[in-house]
Design a protein around this nucleic acid. Structure first.
Lengths: 213, 213
DNA sequence: ACGGCTTTCTGACGGGGCGTCAGATACGAT
DNA sequence: ATCGTATCTGACGCCCCGTCAGAAAGCCGT
């Protein structure tokens, strides 16, 4: 709960001045960097603050604990994710549908590459049951999932997809594919698949499962 | 590397006697329990050993660090996963194909529910780049993915699936769906989807994507 | 430019987990 | 029962955690 009505708050709920806002931002950046470098399990508050040249006590002025900082990062990542919905608007039923599917995959890949360390932690904590991270994940994916659900409903109405599939579950499955497959890239490459195989295959899978074409 | 040629080894590579094997097993069980209860981030060696009534030093006789224990658990889980391949053998091309897909989903769900805490950690560490966990994950999924790849190749040969999809990537995507969706169950339920919707939808998605029917 | 007030930062501390080692204890063979 | 080996653990120094009281920096009115 770091942001309310555009006011950035410290750990004790006070409103921050400009100097404090800068410090907070630097701490978040440092957290993100260390997260990407060495993983959550090795994330230490001492290291975060050392990185920005301040002391551990400072950290606690902005975040009640590490989780609070991680949550703030997750919420930042959400802002990058929401625009992806533009690739889904108006469906993929026109003849350039498959192309648009590919563009969506590309856009998601970029988003993922920029935020993967944070997203991994967000998903881990969400799956472990933490309500705040659950909420953050839902909010991030909601727009995409709703847009995809609409595509499925349309395809069902047109008789291209069976009525037996549940639109929301189908949409969530598509997010699952794309979210889960990106970290596999190196492994897939090691199996001799050409580099575009992943992108193209995922695009076709999404296209088929969402439009029934 | 806790096991070589059926001999169970301690952290220093020595062969364990029966008493030691029991202790090691109890430590692993305790680790698994605490993992499920409170997540990786709060996993403490002190707690693990307290749980079995021994001291932290004992832990280090069997595992060089927590990761080693987690890896051992991941390898145990693999043993539960391999038999699932029986649901894929001979393909889903007969008329009971969709039924068999449903049974596979059920079997995987059971496997997941029994092992989810460990699998989550395995996947996290694998995605963070740890080679040992990468290896463990690959080994666990390999049989399933190979079987699914064969199904895709068959469907492509019969003209039911486009040649443009890569069998291995497709198979991995199916694993992604099923692995990733199970933790979402509560969230999907909260959206008013009936309880079987997930099972049935995933079964249909797998069936369609793997057989092209 | 100075004093006083507020915001922001930090040194220092008790608490506790980490990982190691030397010595204690339990076991099995004879 | 004794000995040798396998197994266990108490105790220690190290480092991170989270807190608090006080220091430093910034701001404002005069």
């Amino acid at each position: 709960m770091a942001r309310t009505n555009n006011l950035i708050l410290g750990a004790d709920g006070r409103v921050l001045g400009t100097r404090a806002e800068t410090t907070r931002a630097r701490l978040l950046e440092s957290t993100s960097k260390l997260l990407a470098e060495s993983g959550v399990l090795d994330l230490k508050i001492v290291d975060i603050t050392r990185e920005v040249g301040s002391s551990p006590a400072t950290f606690y002025q902005y975040f009640v604990d590490v989780d609070a900082a991680l949550l703030a990062l997750a919420e930042q990542a959400t802002a990058d994710e929401l625009p992806l919905v533009s690739h889904l608007e108006n469906g993929w039923d026109a003849e350039d549908g498959l192309t648009r599917a590919g563009e969506f995959v590309d856009a998601y890949t970029t988003f993922w590459d920029d935020n993967n360390a944070v997203l991994r932690v967000r998903n881990l904590k969400a799956e472990e049951g933490d309500p705040a991270f659950r909420e953050a994940r839902s909010k991030a994916n909601l727009l995409l999932i709703e847009a995809m659900s609409k595509m499925v409903e349309q395809a069902q109405a047109d008789g291209r997809l069976p009525a037996s599939i549940h639109p929301f579950v189908t949409a969530t499955s598509m997010i699952a594919i794309i979210e889960r497959l990106l970290p596999y890239r190196t492994e897939i490459a090691r199996r001799g698949a050409p580099p575009e195989a992943l992108r193209d295959t995922v695009a076709v899978l999404l296209y088929r499962s969402l439009t029934g074409r």
